[in-house]
Design a protein around this nucleic acid. Structure first.
Lengths: 281, 281
DNA sequence: GAGTGGTCTAGACCACACT
DNA sequence: GTGTGGTCTAGACCACTCC
């Protein structure tokens, strides 16, 4: 299971032989010498232990061993399971937490991240009111939800075969009662069987919460391409603005585990009283 | 210097008294009990050791003890200087590296990050060609560079007093020979004495490299607010597009150490053949 | 080979949350 | 009090870089 590419592995017992008589200083973990893949020289594809642990935890997450919102086993338990030290588990969990897949809570445990939490609600929606006055409650209006064969460009981006089924959703988001965002969304049909406009309308809270709860699809990471465009007739009517008015075009490709694309979204944002915020580091 | 708020600090020598006769197991670090600030109870403002180390390193960076591109002392040296273990220094340096203030290079050392490196050149410019064909060389054309009293809104954002001097720069960036970006830039006058259009034009490479090399101002972090706007007459002429064409408006506030704002930039991006890319995690 | 960052371990102790 | 994550240490060994 766990792979260590080096040949000699020693515990520090070698240099501290006069320890209290607690028996043998615990056998070293079940380490297997150089496997990984082909080639037999020194370290052809070195991968640290904590990375291997990270992959194992990731696999359990993906397999649904622990559900979103639930606690994963404690560091001590994981260390015992994987036969490594707590420090190594810690490093693996630290990275997963920094990637927003896990959530650490001191004194309580480590939890599987979820989109249904209030606090992380706007992790993916970067549109922010210019003034607090324009904040107000968010309202989602679903205009359409149909199943169809994926157009070529959609299929390519979602890594589907030409002709595969997709679910197409059109919706408008209202901020403080005014239409601000028009989204067209495409989802792989085989992952979202039974998704209807009604289920979308009935669900309270962000869409990704529904996807996670009802369809077991967890959005982990996304890329966005942003442009300025002029409103067409249809868009102008839906957002109640003038034809030709400048809009922010946001094309988002969302991924789940393993970087597999599972959602394509083309959004048009009215940015007269809102802006897209970003942080550069 | 280093502050530990707890009362009892023990080395593990306590539980391993039968160590080889290497003398006393090294005295514990020069730890000072509860200081931090006022109040005397348990742990009123607990701050871990590595955070304190991080602050000390940050202070040295800010004071220019090591210049951009230079190596900082090795972990072992820093551990000795601060009288903590290498692991604690490591954690401090790790965080600074993850914030892009330091750059670790295995086998070589840890270096102060710089904007003059090829690899990090486009850390702040998120505009990307849609097709590789539109890539081409970047060309910077400086149209204006003048000193003036800061308008109220500029002064407020840069946290200057009304009437303080600022340097105002206008420039156009060309991609593959075509104008794509129009930037208006404001800099605090007292930090950029002697900045002229000529010096800007003569410098090859990104502006932030010049700022860092010539003025000792290092951009660490920035926030951007993005909108869609319609091109006005002046902008249209400079970017060679039609009046009213949609443009991406990017307002950037850049900060140096201590989150002090040191640059305000209002950019207009032509996004017909380029897009602003962003990653969501 | 020497020096640097990177990994791994083992153990002690602290801060925090629940009970 | 018990259990969880968080900090800190000390030491061994590995991978990488340069001389």
């Amino acid at each position: 299971m766990l792979v260590v590419q080096s040949t000699s592995v020693k515990t520090h017992a070698v240099v501290a032989p006069s320890l209290p008589s607690s028996g043998a200083p615990a056998e070293p973990p079940a380490l297997v010498a150089g496997e990984a893949s082909a080639s037999g020289v020194g370290s052809p594809s070195f991968s640290p232990l904590y990375q291997q642990i990270k992959s194992l935890i990731l696999r359990s997450l993906q397999a649904g061993e622990w559900r979103p919102g639930e606690a994963i086993p404690s560091e001590i338990e994981l260390a015992a399971r994987f036969k490594v030290s707590q420090g190594t588990v810690r490093k693996a969990v630290d990275e997963l937490a920094s990637e927003n897949l896990l959530l650490r809570r001191q004194g309580k445990g480590t939890y599987v991240a979820t989109h249904t939490e209030e606090r992380v609600q706007y992790r993916f929606l970067r549109l922010t009111p210019d003034q607090p006055e324009h904040a107000g409650p968010v309202q989602r209006e679903f205009l359409d939800c149909r199943r169809l064969r994926a157009p070529a460009d959609i299929a390519r981006l979602l890594q589907l075969k030409a002709g595969d089924m997709v679910v197409e959703v059109r919706r408008v988001m209202h901020f403080a009662g005014k239409p601000v965002v028009l989204d067209d969304i495409w989802l792989p049909g085989h992952l979202f069987k039974g998704l209807t406009a009604e289920r979308l309308s009935d669900y309270k809270g962000p869409m990704y919460g529904l996807f996670e709860t009802e369809f077991g699809v967890r959005m982990i990471r996304a890329e966005e391409k942003i442009r300025a465009v002029a409103a067409g007739e249809v868009e102008a009517a839906l957002l109640k603005i003038a034809v030709g008015a400048p809009l922010l075009s946001v094309e988002r490709l969302s991924h789940t585990y393993d970087d597999q694309p599972v959602e394509l979204r083309r959004g048009l944002y009215m940015t007269e009283f809102h802006h897209y915020r970003n942080e550069l580091n």
